[in-house]
Amino acid sequence: MGLAVRLVMRLFEQAWGLIAIFAFWQIWVMANHYNSIVIVSPLAVLRDMALNPMIYLLPSLWTLAFSLGGLAAGMSIGLLLAITAWRWRLFAGTIGPTALLISSTPVVCLIPLLARIFGYESRTEFVTVAVMSFFPCFVFATAGLRALPPMSRELFHVLAASRSRQLLSLALPAAIPSLSIALRVGAATSVLVTMVAEYLMQTGGLGNMFALTSQAFQTERAWGASLAAMMLSAILYTIGGAVELKVRERFR
């Protein structure tokens, strides 16, 4: 009995905000007697998701695959650039301004541009997410490669370590905590950016599903697609956070 009460309390402590939003939404819809084409109640959305799980599953997996693939590619490029900048200091200065320009360009603006260059195809989703995630990874990795344990640089110097040994045994492990932050931040956003790209280009996935169903006035399903994307994004953020915590324990 006591345990059950405590569990409910814990849940409420975490979720009171969400419960309030859902309740407000439900009451608002009921009070205004909106037509279901314009706006739907949360219960209607959840019912549609529960009754047709397969319809949601495939687009979700599609979106997930493109966000994670693009994220992996973008982060690899960012890490490689950071290592190059670590090895040759001058390189850091020469790519810095270009990288800053690309990164400060709001990524959604690049979607039309990239769509023109790479075509209205799924690969453009991939490129968009890669472009979005490479710069934060580059910044975090650059800082991480230099956040060495105290005196360790001197130690490696006295032991006459080669540059590649310094990179492998010292700088790269030291950069892992920073990289895990980049992963957490990137994972959650990548789903949302993929969804915008899919919405604009109608190439598939949850964004495409949202576009098609809202054009067909299937409002429950359109909102269901958004809810699915939210859940994906939240799950990735939570996983990323857990990874970051584990990494921080291991590397500090």
């Binding site: 344990p149 105290p150 005196m151 360790s152 001197e154 130690l155 045994s169 010292l170 492990p173 892992i176 291991r250 590397f251 500090r252």
Partner: peptide, 8 residues
């Protein structure tokens, strides 16, 4: 003075 052991 600082041990300089690699924490990982």
């Amino acid at each position: 003075q600082d041990h300089a052991l690699l924490p990982w």
